[in-house]
Computed example of a mutant assay.
Amino acid sequence: MADGLGTALVTGASGGIGAVYADRLARRGYDLVLAARDRSKMEAISSRLKDTGTTIEVLAADLTRPEDLDAVETRLAAGDVSLLVNNAGMSLNGSLLENGPEEISRIIALNITAPARLAAAAAKAFVAKGHGAVVNIASVLALAPERYDGIYSGSKSFLLNLSQSMTAHYSDKGVYTQAVLPGATRTELWERSGKDVNSFPIEMLMEVEDLVDAALVGFDRREPVTIPPLPDEAPWKAMQQARMSMAPNLSRRAVAERYLSSQTESA
């Protein structure tokens, strides 16, 4: 390990965003724990990164299986991990109406339960030692629920919510949390969910290397939320300010007058 950065644990590390994170973090000087289902792909990544001189551990895990999720939580608690990249995720093949209980349970297990449990395990370890970072890979669809399947976008909204809450509660304890919101990115996710990534207009589709490099710029700047495709951050800031302006009035003893008026009219 070159610069005392510690170990980065990357989920969904066998390809796509996770594999590029593995490459970039290894070249920064992190040791790595790669966690995904496909051991052979992770071993190939490990072989390609030998020139970095980093130590790479491969942890075969299906995060929808309780025993595998337990194993990754245990690895996070070992004490040497300083960065968790919560990247593993999936999309449904088809709409809400075209999927059954098994498919819906699986996406919730992978996109919500697993990252929540791993973020909690990492945060506990990081608070105990006073430093550490969690990167949650969400999606711009967290901000646009009308545009896509609600379960997938809802799972990414959960990660954004979790990240912002962690920033509010644990940043003063030495834990940096970043939510990364990619737009359409060229990864295997599309094919696995029965979608043709090449059907996207070329101007909408970001290359995965560009996405991760931009996310790491946000990481270095300690941004709480990084949206690589967004040209101007002013709308995001305005939305955050509008959201915060509602806070004093979101919980009150009295019903808002705008609801009392309809009761009066009915009477």
Rank of each mutant, 00 (worst) to 15 (best):
M42N: 08
M42V: 05
M42D: 07
M42K: 05
E43Y: 00
E43K: 01
E43L: 08
E43R: 02
E43M: 04
E43A: 09
A44G: 10
A44S: 14
A44Y: 00
A44R: 11
A44T: 13
A44V: 07
I45H: 07
I45M: 08
I45V: 13
I45D: 05
I45T: 14
S46M: 09
S46H: 06
S46V: 02
S46R: 14
S47F: 01
R48A: 15
R48W: 01
L49F: 01
K50T: 11
K50I: 03
K50Q: 14
K50E: 15
D51R: 05
D51G: 10
T52G: 01
T52K: 01
T52I: 00
T52H: 01
T52Q: 01
G53I: 00
G53M: 00
G53A: 02
G53N: 03
G53V: 00
G53C: 01
T54Q: 14
T54W: 00
T54G: 12
T54M: 07
T54D: 03
T55H: 14
T55K: 15
T55A: 14
T55Q: 14
I56H: 09
I56M: 11
I56C: 06
I56N: 08
I56E: 08
E57C: 12
E57M: 13
E57D: 15
E57Y: 12
V58F: 02
V58G: 08
V58L: 06
V58R: 02
V58W: 02
L59C: 13
L59M: 14
L59T: 07
A60V: 05
A60H: 02
A60C: 08
A60R: 11
A61Q: 08
A61K: 10
A61Y: 08
A61H: 09
A61I: 11
A61F: 10
D62I: 06
D62W: 03
D62V: 04
D62Y: 06
D62M: 10
D62H: 06
L63E: 02
L63G: 06
L63Y: 03
T64C: 12
T64S: 15
T64Q: 08
T64F: 08
T64V: 15
T64E: 11
T64P: 04
T64M: 10
T64K: 09
R65C: 15
R65M: 15
R65Y: 12
P66L: 09
P66Q: 11
P66R: 12
E67T: 12
E67N: 10
D68V: 05
D68W: 05
D68N: 09
D68Y: 04
D68K: 06
L69G: 05
L69F: 03
L69K: 02
L69M: 04
L69R: 12
L69A: 06
D70M: 09
D70I: 04
A71R: 15
A71Y: 08
A71L: 13
A71S: 15
A71C: 10
V72P: 04
V72N: 02
V72H: 01
V72D: 02
T74S: 14
T74I: 10
T74W: 05
T74C: 07
R75E: 08
R75C: 04
R75S: 07
R75T: 04
L76K: 03
L76Q: 04
L76E: 03
A77S: 14
A77R: 14
A77E: 13
A77P: 10
A77V: 06
A77I: 09
A78F: 01
A78T: 10
A78G: 05
A78E: 11
A78R: 13
G79F: 10
G79Q: 10
G79I: 12
G79Y: 09
G79L: 09
